[in-house]
Structures are given as C-alpha cells and as structure tokens.
Nucleic acid binder design. Structure first.
Lengths: 184, 184
DNA sequence: CGCTTCACTGACCGGAGAGTCATATAGGCG
DNA sequence: CGCCTATATGACTCTCCGGTCAGTGAAGCG
C-alpha cells in the first residue's frame, strides 16, 4: 500500500528530506505509479495525515463519551492518545514533529486540520466547565485547564516517542496532581 | 550581522526551506561573503542555535539560584523561559519548531545541545527531590514532576508563539495547580 | 602614483530531486 | 491468436539551490 509506505518514510525523514523515489521503492512500485494515484508529493503527504487525524479524532470523542466523571473523561483523553501512539507511531511522529512545526511557524495548514485540533481542546474545556458548574472542582478557567491537559498529554507522547519507557505510571501521576490540584 | 539575518530567515522558513541567497540578501551582503565566515549552510544554522541556547541555559541557572523556596524556583524556570521568548522570538521558533522535531525523529543532534536539554530537566528534578526530602511536598517521583513542569512550560511557550494572548495569568494558574497538587 | 592585499561579489557549476511520458506488459474479448 | 485497453514503469527533463572562484574595487604603502 502506497500510503503505508509514505507514512513510514515521512515519519523518519520529514517532508522535505523525503524523496519520492524512496516512497516508491518502499511501496514496491515505480515512481510513475505514485503519480497515477496522487498529483504531487504534497498530495501524498496530506492524504497520510488527514486520514489518520480523522480516526484519532473519532476515537477521542467516542472514548470521552463513554467515560463518566470529569476526571475519567480527562483520563480517557490522555489514554486514547497514548494508546493510539502505540499502534500508529509513524503517524504520531509526523504529527508531533512536523505538523506542529508548521502551525508554530504560521505556515498554511489545511484548514480542517487546524480546526480539528482546536475543537478537541474546546471539548476538554467543556468538560471542565461542566465540572466547575457542578462544584466538583474549584473555580478555574476551563480554557486554562484544557490547555494544561493538552500540554501534559503532548509531553507524555513526546517522551514516549523519544525514550522507550512506558508511560502508564506517568499518566497516573499527572492525573493525581490534577485531581488534588483542582478539587475544591 | 549575518547571524541576525540567518536567525530571522530560519525562524520563518525552517532549515530546509531556507535558501542561502535569502540570508545573504537580508544580511545585505553577497552570497560569497557568507562562505568567508561559515563553511556551509549547516554551520550557519548551528552557530545560530548554539549561541542562543547557551545564553538561555545560563539565564535559567542564574534565576533559579536566586530563588528561595521550591515553588519560587519552579516559577523562575517557567518565567525565565517565557521572558526569553519575548526578547528572542526567532530563536524560540527555531528551537520549538525544528530542534524538537529533530530530536523526536532521532536525527543526529549536536551532542552538547542534547545534553543541555537533559541537564536542565535534571536540575528541576533536583529541586523537587530536595523539596520532598524537606517534606515540603508529598512523596512523588522528582523525575515525573520535572517532566510535568517542563511540558507545561513548553505548552505555554508554544501558545504564546501561536496566538498573541499574554501568558502571565496562565503561569499563575499552572503554579497554583502544581502547589495544591503537590503539597502534603 | 603604481603595486599589493584583502574583503567582497555574483555568475556559474554540478548534483539532486519532482514530475513526465514513451514504452512495455498483462489481461480481457471477439 | 490478433487487437485493444489498463496499468505500470524508469529513463529523462527541467528547475532549483548549495557551494565555488575569477574578478572587482577600495584601502594601505613605499
């Protein structure tokens, strides 16, 4: 599968250092064949990122919906991302190492992807807002709390990608700090 | 100044998308002149990153040493980085958007830079270890706590780079969560 | 004023890599 | 089997850009 091969190569070399022949070779087809299915290198890249991103987004929604209390929901958010990472390392490498760089630099990013990232954090904020309303946690800015969780999760993912240590106990630690830091 | 110009361009385009002529043009010199002072594009890049990184490292040490309690030290760590960001946006863009990508991808990174990043987190861990020993905070893994602070700080920096909202109140919030989450 | 030195320059070179297209091969179909 | 369409291919082209170097001009000097 071409996308398979592309993901593999992009994850290791990054967009600019990936040469199209490498993708073709890994996919076991000729370079010309790639251009039967995609119009350009960029189109291949986007196809890889978008499909995986959608899947992660859906999984996140589903798992959060299942969870009950606010901290179960927050934990679900962290857990689903770290589980996803285990199965889709290559995608996560691309997302973390390249996609965030593009946003940081203010490069044009396909609009729906940008949107998806924002939505996800908005979702977290709603969870916190609800918990505040129900007095389960003290008065805080839900946006700040959402940002905090999102930052912690990204940190965990990056660490997991870089060194091989498992992260389960680190999730426990962070959830622990959050709960005792946020409850009334 | 050539480094000035290089930093400006690299921060906006990234290493691969920066063309040497752009640096020369911005520096107001001919391309040949660059090669009188640097052997290659890569050497220019490293010169930019290394010098700035050293300065940030020294500042961090100094400000942490001045601080008294564990939470003042931790706050100093966050604050010094966010202050540095205000004065040196271009460097921070390069560091955040590119340098971390290289490490994530496992690309060869000049050894002392890698080391410097690790040291900094070790330093944080020592602060937490000392606080635990003095019973100022509950029994926690100092490494985890250090990782947490480092992740939160990075998150703040990224947000500050992307949207224009000031971060002072967010530091307050995070320090607040940390203190009530960690004290006995 | 000639001569030397030296910082500087930008036209040029060569390699790299994205995208193309003439050709080849395989699978229907009459 | 001949013919036609599908799909696949990799040698080729064309552009881009890192790095070079012959040349320029200004400054210093006898």
């Amino acid at each position: 599968m071409i996308l398979e091969a592309a993901r593999f190569v992009f994850a290791r070399q990054g967009y600019r250092d990936t040469i199209v022949d490498d993708i073709a070779e890994r996919a076991g087809v000729g370079k010309g064949t790639l251009y039967l299915y995609f119009r350009s290198k960029e189109e291949i890249y986007l196809a890889v990122v978008v499909s995986d991103m959608r899947r992660l987004d859906e999984l996140t929604r589903a798992r959060i919906a299942e969870a009950g209390s606010w901290h179960e929901k927050v934990r679900a958010y962290m857990q689903v991302r770290l589980d996803y990472l285990e199965r889709h390392r290559d995608f996560v490498r691309i997302y973390m190492a390249e996609f965030r760089s593009m946003m940081l630099r203010g490069n044009p990013v396909p609009f729906d992807l940008h949107q998806m990232a924002r939505d996800c954090e908005g979702h977290l904020a709603q969870i916190f807002a609800a918990a505040v309303a129900k007095r389960e946690i003290r008065m805080i800015d839900p946006e700040f709390a959402a940002a905090t969780v999102s930052d912690l999760t990204r940190g965990l993912m990056e660490r997991r990608l870089m060194d091989e240590a498992p992260v389960a106990s680190k999730i426990d630690f962070m959830m622990d700090v959050l709960r005792s830091g946020l409850t009334v």
